[in-house]
Each structure stands twice: as structure tokens, then as C-alpha cells.
Nucleic acid binder design. Structure first.
Lengths: 181, 181
DNA sequence: CACACTAAAGCAAATTATTTGCATTAGAAG
DNA sequence: CTTCTAATGCAAATAATTTGCTTTAGTGTG
């Protein structure tokens, strides 16, 4: 009685969420984004469409939710021995991963939902925070997190969403070099 | 006979496009984004829904199209006498305009469509290009356009889309100062 | 200006997606 | 084991989307 408004996390709910997410991943690999429908996803997941409508509301929210869970990093940034090397390696890998067509699409999907975009932003900041803390532990002078978001992450995301300009290793090195200068 | 695959620009087509765009603007000012529907927009515009489906495809594309036309700048950047002053004034005004809730929504809409995002990017670049050309005419050493996109425009757009951080005049001054440094 | 041509719009029927009320299932708590 | 109820399933009702065909109105020609 003490737990009002409780939400159920484990069990069937979790299984269905997993099945629906998986169905979205499977289908979006084979189907153009504009052809995806909720009844199609529901069928693939072995679930009734109304379940999806009630839990997610509409297709944009579902896709945004799936996108965020896929954009969450799996591991901490690699430890390369120094802050500069960590940052260079992380930037290169981040740029490489995020600029794939699949990732571009997911980022566009995530953009539709303000909450989800903030979460993505948080993931990235957490990754950089790990690099900063590691630098502090080594006794290095840590870089400023906000400036890194502005000068490294923002230009990459801007090119992914708005521009046709290349996202390659020279560009990655230039961003890091300009930032550390 | 020489004009194959011709498209009609003026006349009725233009009137209907205008009516539909206006209907979207009117409705989106009063209606939460998630409640907008094509039949609703069609009724407001005095048009049949199938006209909208055939011309725009779906709601996301229509909203994206309207967003881009609204994000197109009306005038050239103000001439403040020097490149630095022009850039400072432009950045301040750009940030102010783009960070309104209405603009945030339009930018999210535009993000859904790769072509439209590139167009937006082009508008902004054209504005900065005007400042650069003016500087050249004055005999000033012009700044690098790509660096300006990376270090001024990108951080602003990133905060608008992904972050909850403030977009205020001190931040605008900081971006410009860091860039010109 | 009249005429032919046809892109774009209208209309309405057919299809498909979404919403909703009620019945059922299966976690969670006692 | 039993009770409680959030979450799902099901199916009917509603709403959106697609589509074939008709009509309207720019465009170009004589």
C-alpha cells in the first residue's frame, strides 16, 4: 500500500519492451524509415499494436526511444596513457561510429524528442567525464568539459545533422588539436 | 513539347502551397505538435487532404518544409562597421532568434529531413559569407567560414537541440571572443 | 482569343492505422 | 495461496491514408 503509482519493471513488461526494440532494429535494417509502421513492428514483435500505442504513443516516440538505447555507449573510453591520447582516440572513434548512415538516422529520430536528446548529450558528457577523472588521477591538468562539448562534440554533431562535409580522421585530429591548443 | 517533366510554379499551385503553409503556422501556434494532423491542416487551408498527401507525402515532410521556409533569413546581417562587430551582432541575434521554443520546434522538424537540414545550413553559411565579403571589401583580413561554422554555429545548434544549457548574451560573447582569439 | 494539352486538385470508395472499452493475464505484496 | 492491479490482448469504433477516377485551371500553340 505504501508504493502508490508503482510501475512494473521486470517480467513481461521487460520482455515485451525487448521484443519491440528488437523488432524495430530488425525491421529498420531492411525497411526504409518512411515505410515503417506500428502494426508492422507489432507483428514482428508478436505483440498487439495497441500495446505499442499505449506504451509509446506513436512511431516517432518509439523510434526515438530505441535510438537512445542504441546510442548509449557500451564501454568507457579506452585508456591510452595520457589525457591527450584518450581524447584523440575517443574523438576518432566517436566520429567514426556516429557518422554511419544508421547512426545518422538514429540521431535524427532522437532529435524529435527533447528528453531523448538530453539523454544522448548526457551519455557523451559522461564519457568525457571519465577521461577527465582519469587525467586528474594521473595528476594531469584536466580539460574543461563544457569547452570540449562546444569545440569537439558540437561540430561533429552539426556536420552529422546539417552538413555534407566529411567526417574523417584529419578532421578529428584538427578538432582535438585546436581544442588542446 | 520541348519542356518535358515540367512542374507548375505559379497560379493555383502556389496559392495552395501558401494556404497550407499558413495553416500550419496558424495551427502550430495553438496546437501541441503531437496533436497536429493532416486532415486538420487541410481543413484550415480549405484544401482536400489528398492534395497534401500527394504533394508532401506525410506530416513530417510538410512540417519540415514549412520549418525551412520559416528559418530562411529575411535580411542580410547588419553592417556594424567592422568584421568583429558584424560577427558579434549576428551571433547575438541568431542565438536569440533560434533559441525560442517555436524555433526549437522548427529545427527539430527540419532535422527529420536531410535535404532540409542542408538547406538550413546553407542559409546560415550565406549569412556569414556576407559578413566575410563585406570585410574583404573594407580591406580587413576575413575569418575562415568553416571554422566559424564549427566554433560558433555548431555549439549554438548543439545547445538548442541536445542540451539544457543557457543561450544568453555572455555565452554569445564568449563564443565570438574565443573564435576571434 | 479560342483551343488542346496536362499537371495538379477534388471527390469518394477502399484500405490501413489509431483509439478505446472491456476481458484476461501475470507480476508483486501480504 | 490469495488478492490486487498494471500491463496486455481483443475487437469494435473512429480516424487517417491511399487510390482510381473526374474536374479544374495553368501553359503553350495557332
Amino acid at each position: 500500500m505504501s508504493t502508490r503509482e508503482r510501475v512494473r519493471f521486470g517480467g513481461r513488461s521487460a520482455r515485451i519492451q525487448e521484443a519491440v526494440h528488437q523488432a524495430v532494429k530488425d525491421l529498420s535494417a531492411r525497411t526504409p524509415r518512411a515505410d515503417l509502421t506500428i502494426p508492422m513492428i507489432a507483428a514482428k514483435a508478436g505483440v498487439t499494436p495497441s500495446t505499442i500505442y499505449r506504451r509509446w504513443g506513436d512511431l516517432a516516440e518509439l523510434l526515438s526511444d530505441v535510438a537512445v538505447s542504441r546510442l548509449r555507449p557500451i564501454a568507457d573510453p579506452a585508456d591510452c596513457g595520457s589525457q591527450e591520447a584518450d581524447l584523440a582516440a575517443w574523438t576518432e572513434q566517436f566520429m567514426e561510429e556516429m557518422s554511419s548512415d544508421a547512426c545518422r538516422g538514429m540521431i535524427r529520430d532522437a532529435c524529435a524528442n527533447p528528453n531523448d536528446t538530453k539523454q544522448c548529450c548526457g551519455f557523451i558528457q559522461d564519457q568525457l567525464q571519465v577521461i577527465v577523472e582519469r587525467a586528474e588521477a594521473r595528476g594531469e591538468k584536466p580539460f574543461d568539459l563544457e569547452r570540449a562539448m562546444d569545440q569537439i562534440v558540437a561540430p561533429i554533431m552539426y556536420r552529422i545533422l546539417f552538413s555534407a562535409k566529411p567526417l574523417d580522421i584529419p578532421y578529428s585530429r584538427q578538432l582535438v588539436a585546436d581544442f588542446l591548443k
